[in-house]
């Protein structure tokens, strides 16, 4: 009893369209002060490609596929981890000028 649904044709187009508008709306109203962290943050988000690479590697049957898949997971993991660390470091530094800390 697999629940796997297939995403084909127009369903895929609907997903792409809605996702595209979502991305546009999120970035559209961002102050310039956050452009660099957001570029880095969106860079982190497409690190999700690591999941696809893991899928490809798990289903590899030949040595060639294993090698390519291995490098794919390596790259994807670096994209995700690097994007996260760098973004977090940048955002951590943004602080308002109140003295409420005490």
């Amino acid at each position: 009893m697999d629940v796997t649904t297939s995403i084909t044709g127009f369903v895929a187009l609907y997903i792409f369209m809605l996702a595209a508008f979502t991305g546009y709306e999120i970035i559209g109203r961002v102050p310039a002060i956050l452009h660099t962290p957001l570029m880095s943050g969106s860079n982190f988000v497409h690190g999700i490609v690591v999941v696809g690479a893991i899928f490809a590697l798990m289903n590899a049957t030949t040595v060639l596929e294993q090698v390519i898949g291995f490098i794919g997971v390596l790259f994807g993991a670096a994209n995700a981890a690097g994007g996260y660390v760098v973004t977090e470091r940048m955002l951590e530094m943004f602080k308002p000028s109140d003295k409420k800390k005490a």
């Binding site: 995403i7 996702a19 595209a20 991305g23 970035i27 988000v45 999700i48 999941v51």
Partner: peptide, 26 residues
């Protein structure tokens, strides 16, 4: 996003496309 479609993986499709459009605007 495109490889997400090929792999039938909605997480890749959505994340990829959100970044694709946000990145284009940026």
């Amino acid at each position: 996003g495109m490889e997400g479609f090929v792999l039938q993986n909605p997480a890749l499709m959505i994340a990829g496309m959100v970044v694709g459009s946000a990145g284009t605007l940026l």
